[in-house]
C-alpha cells in the first residue's frame, strides 16, 4: 500500500470513530477544513507512527506542521525509509 493510501485510510478510520464527516480529501484542502480537532490529529500521527515507524513531526525540530492534506501526506512521503 502506498504511503498516501495508508495516510488517507487512517484519516477515514479516525473520522469514522470520531463521527466526523469528511469533505473530499483533495491535496489543497486545508487541514482545518477536514473537521479534525487537535486530538484527532494526535491520534492520526500516533497511529501512522505505529504503522509506518515514523513521526515526521517529532523527528525534525523545525518541521512546521502542514497546512493542507497534501502537505500532510508529503510529510510522510518525504521521510527516508
Amino acid at each position: 500500500m502506498s504511503v498516501r493510501s495508508k495516510v488517507i485510510e487512517a484519516i477515514q478510520q479516525i473520522a469514522k470513530e470520531q463521527h466526523v464527516t469528511l469533505p473530499v480529501l483533495s491535496d489543497d484542502l486545508s487541514l482545518h477544513e477536514t473537521g479534525f480537532d487537535s486530538l484527532a490529529f494526535a491520534i492520526l500521527v500516533a497511529r501512522l507512527e505505529d504503522e509506518t515507524g515514523v513521526d515526521p513531526f517529532t523527528i525534525s525540530e523545525d518541521a512546521a506542521f502542514p497546512a493542507t492534506v497534501g502537505d500532510f501526506v508529503r510529510a510522510y512521503e518525504n521521510v527516508p525509509a
Partner: peptide, 12 residues
C-alpha cells in the same frame, strides 16, 4: 501516556 507532537500527550 505517549508523547504527541500535536497535543503533548495521548493515551495509549
Amino acid at each position: 501516556s505517549r508523547k504527541s507532537p500535536i497535543t503533548g500527550g495521548i493515551v495509549v
